[in-house]
Design a protein around this nucleic acid. Structure first.
Length: 432
RNA sequence: UCGGCGGUAGCUCAGUGGCAGAGCGAUCGGCUGUUAACCGAUUGGUCGUAGGUUCGAAUCCUACCCGCCGAGCCA
């Protein structure tokens, strides 16, 4: 007899094991009962037969309630009727805590109810599978950069000033008189890191006080932001492509059971794992969209429906390059022969998941950067440290930011971002 | 911030001017292979809140609150 986890049961057929876990459901008849068990590592069915066990074990099993915690012992048996190929023939059931009136019953529930009970809903199969994919995706990201000599570089969460205007920043009261803001990007700090360590990436939560109530928005989300010294725009696009195909390939390779549980059509991710992402310019995008009846003028930013139209033309992420300078952020490097356009790209995910990456080459000329800061009416004193990066050994450099939850929602095929983060923070959801 | 939809039992919903309903859940009983099992019984209500119209309001009117979907903005 030894302790086992459900995940390992297929390798323990014929052995007597003990499991620590919870009951997700019970079906019983007069002489046989089926216990749906979970232990965190997976799900398995336990079968208990009246005539084979003690009265105590039988009565304990029949009295079980949903989400009661328990310790069971039994024999691992191969069974073709089981999805995992195994089930457990139980001989003892010991209850640790009997749960009563567990709210999430095995019937349909509404979104708001499940979010109100998020702390419990995480125990169920769909969130369980998503959180495991989230873990693998996160691990793949770290491995990708580690294998390429990047240093993980943590940007601060408190920011002294508003980098791109205060309207979408959360303001923090610092003991009365001073203000700080929650970070909406680690990029500027990553640039300092790149000048110190060459190739760095940040991976952490960011905060946007946008009053967005759509499936593609959270107030708090995680972002991956690599920044590379001496890397030009083209090099950044190559890195993005290699990065996306690596992490998607890893999840396809290692999370097949989870994706299957989620009902994800993995053939739709095969193209991404191959690389070779299509590219169109902003001007080409306008031409396509206006050809389909849209009314876009040069300089307009593209909206979510536009991104969806364009992305549905491809089976893998789509780069849109050559953006108008005036539609983009102050730090982006313009083309030398076309200052009306910047060396920036958005990467649009297929299937309507929207922009998952935004990247650019950064301005490395001190005077041009000063000029842009002034044009955007930004407080120049707050950017002195950032300007120092151009005063002392400035080099061309580039980077990008990947929205972790959008990427994960797309990979898992989940409709709404709130499903892919353990405890989503939204305009209408701060509890639990 | 704007537009659309919604709020009735623990959950999912029906009820659109005349007795507050169903299914599921839960509880009890039955059933030897169940997969959101099945059969029988029991249990269930501040109809989002406040005001108004009416003989009578879950239902009509007004205001507000909350949620869902989308837009804008963004990842």
């Amino acid at each position: 007899m030894h302790d086992a986890t459900i995940q390992k049961l297929p390798q323990l057929i014929g052995e007597q094991v003990r499991l620590h876990g919870w009951l997700t459901g019970l079906r019983s008849s007069g002489k046989i009962a089926f216990l749906q068990l979970r232990d965190g590592s997976g799900f398995v069915q336990g079968v208990i037969v009246r005539s084979n066990v003690s009265d105590e074990a039988w009565e304990a099993a029949r009295a079980l309630t949903q989400e009661s915690s328990l310790v069971v012992t039994g024999l691992v048996k191969a069974d073709t009727r089981s999805k995992s190929g195994v089930e457990l023939e139980l001989d003892s059931v010991q209850v640790i805590q009997a749960a009563h009136d567990y709210p999430i019953t095995p019937k349909e529930h509404g979104v708001d109810f499940l979010m109100e009970n998020r702390h419990l809903y995480l125990r169920h199969r769909v969130p369980w599978a998503i959180m495991r994919v989230r873990d693998e995706l996160s691990r793949a990201i770290h491995d990708f950069f580690a294998e390429r000599g990047f240093v993980r570089f943590d940007a601060p969460f408190f920011m002294p000033t508003a980098v791109e205007g205060t309207t979408n920043l959360f303001e923090i009261d610092l003991f009365g008189d001073e203000k700080a803001y929650l970070s909406q990007s680690g990029q500027l700090y990553a640039e300092a890191g790149a000048m110190a360590l060459g190739k760095v990436y940040t991976f952490g939560p960011t905060f946007r006080a946008e009053k967005s109530k759509t499936r593609r928005h959270l107030l708090e989300f995680w972002m991956v932001e690599p920044e590379v010294a001496f890397q030009d725009f083209e090099g950044s696009l190559k890195l993005q492509e290699e990065f996306l195909s690596y992490i998607v390939g890893r999840v396809l390779d290692r999370c097949a059971p989870e994706l299957d549980m989620l009902g994800r059509d993995v053939s739709k991710l095969a193209g991404t794992a191959e690389g070779n992402f299509p590219r169109i310019t902003y001007d080409e995008a306008l031409e396509i969209l206006n050809g389909k009846g849209e009314q876009l003028e040069w300089g307009d930013d593209l909206g979510a429906p536009h991104e969806t139209i364009l992305s549905e033309m491809h089976d893998r992420p789509l780069f849109i390059t050559g953006w108008p300078t005036k539609a983009k952020a102050f730090y982006m490097q313009p083309y030398e022969d076309d200052p009306e356009r910047v060396k920036a790209a958005d990467l649009i995910a297929p299937e309507g998941y929207g922009e998952i990456v935004g990247g650019s080459e950064r301005i490395h000329d001190l005077e041009l950067l000063k000029q842009r800061i002034a044009e955007h009416n930004l407080p120049s004193e707050a950017f002195e440290w950032y300007l120092d990066l151009r005063r002392f050994g400035s080099v061309p450099h580039s980077g990008f930011g990947l929205g972790f939850e959008r990427t994960l929602a797309w990979i898992t095929g989940v409709h709404h971002l709130r499903e892919v983060i353990p405890f989503p923070r939204m305009l209408t959801r701060m509890y639990p």
